[in-house]
Structures are given as structure tokens and as C-alpha cells.
């Protein structure tokens, strides 16, 4: 299988929707045909080749697309991809990997909002930061991410795992408010801290916060202190306050909070005697 290097033909200012750009396209079409595929830049229809320079750069086990440069204006790359590899050496735009079903996406820079939105399978790894609605849904929809995994080595924005139903999201640094809002399954695992509103309206699933969490919502109930939590193959050790919620939604989701980073929540320990 081939490796293709794709670079912007010029500095983009207008939004570009390149949802057709995925490994399948390059497997199913000749390169010359790919260059003729139509893509919107603003309200103008352009040829793929007008916007991007594409060159073949060797062989690999799987079809690999290497996006090199600033693609922050380019949206929905890798939409519904099911196989192959996309690697971004630079910046990724909005809704990268939307609804992807399989394959791998590696972003060696920053990612935009709705990364891996409504993802079903495969894996995404980001070495920089990601923005809001990581693995999220779009407005009005019931379900965001349904499967696969997203790992962000940097920070992430608000609403991580918005309406998530299944799969795994790991963020190694801090995130914004409302992680796991409306989630109904899956795991959001944050090694840093988060903003307010964790688990709001959640029905099921797990949220793990190792860093600082400002407060626990009143619709969550303290359950126990756990000594370990399993995330895939990993076993996290420590003292974790465990909360159940969102009870107003008749939810049975679990919110695990590292006790050591959250001394201000120690008053919950008094409840243990009562329990």
C-alpha cells in the first residue's frame, strides 16, 4: 500500500470541507482522479488538486495519508474512514475523523473541535491539544461516540465525551467543563483536572478525574472509596471517591475522583460511617 503526502497548495483562509479525503479514496481511485474530485472552499467548488499538493512517498503496510502543514481550515477529513492511516504533521481542523469506523488517525499537532465526533471504531491519537466536543455528537442528536478510542496527550476543551455511548477517551492533561455531559456509556479518563459540571445529565458510563475537580453536582450520590479502577488493560491504584449519578436522570453512571488531588471533597468521607 502507498504513502501519500498531502500539503496545502497555499495558505487557506476560507473553510474547506474535505470529507472525501480518507484512505479509501486513494485506494479506490487513481491519483489523477483523486486530484479531480470536487471539494468546497467557501462557496466555490474546487478540484482537490487545486487546493492540495499530493505526492506519493513510498510504501507501507496500510494506505497512509500524511497531511503536512496547517489544515486548521479543512474540515471533516477522514469522515467515515474504515481503514488505513491518516497522520497529520501540523494542525487538524474541525470534525477531523467524524464518524470514523476503523483505521488510525495520528495528529502530531493541534486538533479542532468535534474531533472523532460520533466515532464508531478505530483509534485517534493527538500529541498536541484538542478542543471541545471531543468524541461528541451534533446538536439535537442523541448519541456521540459509539466505539473506538481517542487519546489526547495534551489538553482538551469543554464537553469531552458529549453524549458518548461507548468507547474510550483519554486526556492526559486538563480539560474544560462538563466532561461526559449526557453520556450513556463508555469511559472518559482524564489524567489532569476538569471544570465544573462533570457528568451532568449522565445516564451511564464512567468518568475518571485524576486531577482537581471543583465540585460534585448535587444530583450525584457518594457511593464508596475505591482503591483501584480498571481502564482497559491498565489498573489505576489510589484512593478514588466514587459517585453515582445523574440521579435526576435516574442515571447509574460512575464518577471517580482522585481523593489526593481533591482534599476539599474529603467531607464526603464522613458519609462512609453513615453508609
Amino acid at each position: 500500500m502507498k504513502i501519500y503526502q498531502i500539503t496545502p497548495a497555499y495558505d487557506f483562509k476560507l473553510p474547506i470541507v474535505a470529507d472525501i479525503a480518507k484512505p479509501e479514496l486513494f485506494e479506490e481511485k487513481q491519483l489523477s482522479e483523486v486530484l479531480n474530485v470536487e471539494v468546497y472552499e467557501g462557496n466555490r467548488r474546487k478540484r482537490f488538486g487545486e487546493l492540495f499538493k499530493v505526492k506519493e512517498a513510498g510504501e507501507a503496510e496500510e494506505t497512509t495519508l500524511e497531511f503536512i502543514g496547517d489544515f486548521s481550515k479543512v474540515r471533516r477529513i477522514g469522515r467515515r474512514m474504515s481503514r488505513g492511516i491518516i497522520r497529520v504533521k501540523g494542525t487538524a481542523g474541525i470534525a477531523f475523523g467524524e464518524a470514523m469506523k476503523g483505521g488510525r488517525i495520528i495528529i502530531e499537532g493541534l486538533a479542532g473541535p468535534w474531533l472523532g465526533a460520533k466515532m464508531r471504531g478505530g483509534s485517534i491519537e493527538v500529541y498536541g491539544d484538542a478542543e471541545g466536543f471531543l468524541g461528541g455528537a451534533y446538536r439535537g442528536e442523541n448519541i456521540g461516540m459509539r466505539g473506538g478510542s481517542i487519546v489526547v496527550h495534551g489538553k482538551a476543551g469543554w464537553n469531552v465525551g458529549y453524549k458518548m455511548k461507548n468507547g474510550l477517551i483519554v486526556v492526559e492533561s486538563d480539560i474544560g467543563g462538563f466532561p461526559g455531559v449526557h453520556m450513556s456509556g463508555g469511559t472518559v479518563y482524564v489524567k489532569g483536572g476538569c471544570g465544573r459540571g462533570a457528568g451532568a445529565f449522565m445516564k451511564n458510563g464512567r468518568i475518571i478525574i485524576l486531577g482537581y475537580i471543583p465540585s460534585i453536582l448535587a444530583s450525584f450520590s457518594f457511593e464508596e472509596i475505591r482503591a483501584s479502577i480498571r481502564v482497559e488493560a491498565e489498573r489505576l491504584k489510589g484512593r478514588f471517591y466514587t459517585f453515582v449519578g445523574d440521579l435526576s436522570e435516574k442515571g447509574s453512571g460512575r464518577l471517580f475522583v482522585n481523593a489526593d488531588s481533591n482534599r476539599h471533597l474529603s467531607f464526603y468521607e464522613q458519609l462512609i460511617e453513615e453508609l
Binding site: A200, L217, A218, S219, L247
Partner: peptide, 19 residues
């Protein structure tokens, strides 16, 4: 506001608050 609304709603739903 969010936290207060959430608490109010929990009370309306007859939940006991732990705080």
C-alpha cells in the same frame, strides 16, 4: 447557576442532598 439549578431539580425529584 448550573449547580444551583441541578440541586433544585434534585430536590424537586425528592432526592436527598449529601451537602
Amino acid at each position: 447557576d448550573f449547580e444551583i439549578l441541578t440541586a433544585l431539580r434534585a430536590l424537586v425529584n425528592d432526592l436527598d442532598l449529601e451537602v
